Lab assay of single mutants.
Amino acid sequence: SPISQSQFIPLGEILCLAISAMNSARKPVTQEALMEHLTTCFPGVPTPSQEILRHTLNTLVRERKIYPTPDGYFIVTP
Score class of each variant (00 low, 15 high):
Leu38Trp: 09
Ile52Tyr: 15
Thr59Tyr: 09
Ile66Tyr: 00
Glu63Leu: 08
Thr30His: 10
Ile19Glu: 00
Met22Asp: 01
Gln7Gly: 15
Thr39Ile: 14
Arg54Gly: 15
Val61Leu: 09
Leu11Asn: 01
Tyr67Thr: 09
Pro2Ile: 10
Cys16Gly: 03
Glu63Val: 09
Pro68Cys: 14
His37Trp: 03
Glu63Gln: 14
Pro78Thr: 04
Ile75Arg: 09
Ala25Cys: 09
Phe42Thr: 15
Pro46Phe: 01
Thr69Gly: 12
Ala33Cys: 04
Gln5Lys: 13
Asn23Leu: 02
Leu11Ile: 07
Ala33Met: 03
Ala21Lys: 14
Cys16Asp: 02
Lys65Ile: 03
Thr39Ala: 11
Val61Arg: 10
Lys65Cys: 03
Gly72Gln: 10
Ile52Thr: 13
Phe42Cys: 15
Leu57His: 00
Ser4Leu: 11
Ser24Lys: 14
Ser1Leu: 04
Ile52Cys: 10
Gln5Asp: 11
Val29Cys: 13
Thr59Leu: 15
Arg26Met: 06
Asp71Val: 11
Asp71Ala: 12
Ser20Phe: 01
Pro2Lys: 05
Pro10Leu: 15
Ser4Pro: 13
Val45Trp: 14
Phe8Asn: 11
Ala18Phe: 01
Ile19Phe: 02
Asn23Glu: 06
Ala21Asp: 12
Arg64Ala: 10
Thr77Phe: 08
Lys65Gln: 15
Tyr73Met: 06
Asp71Lys: 15
Thr39Leu: 07
Thr30Cys: 11
Leu34Tyr: 00
Leu60Cys: 06
Ala33Thr: 06
Met35Phe: 14
Met22Lys: 01
Phe74Gly: 14
Cys41Pro: 01
Ile9Met: 15
Ala18Tyr: 03
Arg26Ser: 10
Val76Arg: 10
Thr47Ile: 15
Leu38Ser: 01
Thr69Asn: 10
Asn23Val: 05
Ile75His: 04
Leu57Ile: 10
Val61Met: 14
Leu15Ala: 10
Gly12Asp: 05
Arg62Ala: 14
Asn58Gln: 10
Pro10Ile: 15
Cys16Tyr: 11
Val76Thr: 10
Leu17Asn: 15
Cys41Asn: 11
Gln50Asn: 07
Thr69Leu: 04
Leu34Pro: 00
Thr47Leu: 08
Gln7Trp: 05
Lys27His: 06
Phe42Ser: 14
Ser1His: 06
Ile9Cys: 15
Ser24Asn: 15
Lys27Ala: 08
Thr59Phe: 13
Pro70Tyr: 08
Ser49Trp: 00
Arg62Trp: 07
Thr39Ser: 09
Ala25Tyr: 03
Leu34Glu: 00
Ile19Lys: 00
Ile19Cys: 03
Gln7Met: 15
Asp71Phe: 06
Lys65Tyr: 05
Glu63Gly: 09
Pro78Glu: 01
Val45Gln: 12
Ile14Leu: 10
Pro43Leu: 07
Ile14Gln: 06
Ser20Leu: 04
Pro2Val: 12
Ser20Arg: 11
Val45Ile: 14
Ile19Met: 03
His55Gln: 09
Thr56Arg: 04
Gln50Glu: 10
Cys16Lys: 05
Ala21Ser: 15
Lys27Trp: 04
Thr39His: 09
Phe74Thr: 10
Tyr67Lys: 15
Lys65Pro: 00
Ser24Arg: 11
Phe74Ala: 15
Pro10Asn: 15
Met35Glu: 06
Ile9Arg: 14
Arg26Asn: 13
Ile66Gln: 00
Glu13Leu: 02
Ile66Met: 03
Val76Asp: 06
Ile14Gly: 07
Thr39Arg: 13
Ala21Glu: 14
Ile75Thr: 11
Thr56Glu: 07
Arg62Val: 14
Tyr73Asn: 14
Ser49Arg: 03
Gln31Gly: 08
Ile19Ser: 00
Gly72Pro: 01
Met35Ile: 14
Ala21His: 04
Thr69Phe: 08
Pro70Cys: 09
Ile3Met: 09
Pro46Gln: 04
Cys41Thr: 06
Phe8Arg: 08
Leu17Met: 10
Glu51Met: 04
Thr69Trp: 02
Pro28Met: 12
Gly12Ser: 04
Pro68Arg: 12
Pro70Thr: 14
Gly44Val: 06
Ala25Ser: 09
Ser24Gln: 13
Thr56Phe: 10
Thr59Arg: 12
Arg54Ser: 13
Asn23Gly: 05
Asn58Asp: 12
His55Arg: 09
Phe8Lys: 05
Gly12Cys: 05
Gln31Thr: 13
Leu15Glu: 01
Tyr73Val: 04
Ala25Val: 10
Val76Tyr: 07
Ala18Asn: 02
Cys41Val: 09
Leu38Asp: 00
Pro68Leu: 13
Pro68Asn: 13
Thr56Ser: 12
Thr77Cys: 14
Lys65Glu: 04
His55Ser: 12
Thr30Lys: 07
Ser4Arg: 05
Val61Asn: 01
Tyr67Pro: 01
Thr59Glu: 14
Thr77Gln: 06
Leu57Glu: 00
Asn58Pro: 01
Ser6Ala: 12
Arg26His: 07
His37Asn: 07
His37Gly: 03
Arg62Ser: 08
Thr40Ser: 12
Ser1Thr: 01
Leu53Glu: 00
Met35His: 13
Asn58Phe: 04
Tyr73Asp: 05
Thr77Tyr: 07
Cys41Met: 14
Ser49Pro: 03
Ile14Glu: 07
Pro70Val: 13
Thr77Asp: 15
Leu60Gly: 01
Ala21Tyr: 15
Ser4Thr: 12
Phe42Gln: 01
Pro28Glu: 08
Asn58Tyr: 04
Lys65Thr: 10
Asp71Trp: 04
Thr77Ala: 11
Pro70Ser: 13
Ile3Thr: 11
Ala25Gln: 11
Phe8Trp: 11
Ala18Gln: 03
Pro68Phe: 11
Lys65Leu: 08
Glu51Lys: 12
Asn58Cys: 09
Leu53Val: 12
Arg64Phe: 02
Pro70Glu: 12
Ser49Asp: 04
His55Cys: 10
His55Val: 10
Ser1Pro: 01
Ser6His: 02
Thr69Gln: 10
Pro28Ala: 11
Pro10Cys: 05
Gly44Phe: 05
Ser49Ala: 06
Asn58Arg: 11
Ile14Tyr: 06
Pro48Ala: 04
Leu17Val: 08
Gly72Ser: 06
Phe74Tyr: 08
Pro70Trp: 05
Ser4Phe: 05
Ile66His: 00
Ala33Phe: 03
Lys27Ile: 08
Glu13Ile: 01
Leu17Tyr: 10
Pro78Leu: 03
Leu53Met: 13
Ser24Leu: 08
Leu60Tyr: 01
Lys27Thr: 14
Pro28Ile: 07
Phe8Leu: 05
Gly72Ala: 02
Ser24Asp: 11
Lys27Glu: 09
Tyr67Val: 11
His55Leu: 07
Ser4Val: 09
Glu36Gly: 11
Ile9Leu: 14
His55Ile: 06
Glu63His: 12
Ile14Ser: 13
Pro46Arg: 05
Leu57Arg: 00
Val45Phe: 15
Leu15Tyr: 03
Glu32Gly: 09
Met35Pro: 02
Glu32Arg: 08
Thr59Ile: 14
Val45Gly: 06
Ala18Met: 01
Pro70Met: 07
Ile3Val: 12
Ser1Ile: 01
Ile66Leu: 09
Val61Asp: 04
Ile52Ala: 07
Val45Asp: 04
Asp71Tyr: 03
Asn58Thr: 11
Ser49Leu: 01
Ile75Asn: 04
Leu60Val: 01
Ile52Asn: 01
Thr77His: 07
Ile14Met: 13
Gly44Thr: 10
Thr47Lys: 13
Ala21Gln: 12
Glu13Asp: 12
Pro48Asp: 02
Arg54Ile: 10
Thr47Asn: 05
Gln7Pro: 11
Pro68Ile: 09
Leu11Val: 04
Tyr73Gln: 08
Asp71Glu: 12
Pro48Asn: 01
Phe8Ile: 11
Cys41Leu: 06
Lys27Gly: 05
His37Glu: 06
Pro70Ile: 13
Ser49Gln: 03
Glu13Thr: 11
Thr47Met: 10
Phe74Trp: 12
Pro10Tyr: 12
Ser1Asn: 06
Arg54Phe: 07
Pro70Gln: 14
Val45Thr: 10
Asp71Thr: 12
Thr69Ile: 02
Glu32Gln: 14
Leu15Phe: 06
Cys41Lys: 06
Met22Pro: 01
Leu11Tyr: 12
Thr30Ile: 03
Thr47Cys: 06
Leu15Gln: 00
Cys41His: 07
Val45Met: 06
Ala25His: 12
Glu63Ser: 11
Thr47Trp: 02
Ala18His: 05
Leu34Val: 09
Glu13Tyr: 15
Gln5Ile: 09
Ala33Lys: 11
Leu15Cys: 14
Ala33Leu: 08
Ser4Gly: 04
Leu53Trp: 05
Thr56Asn: 05
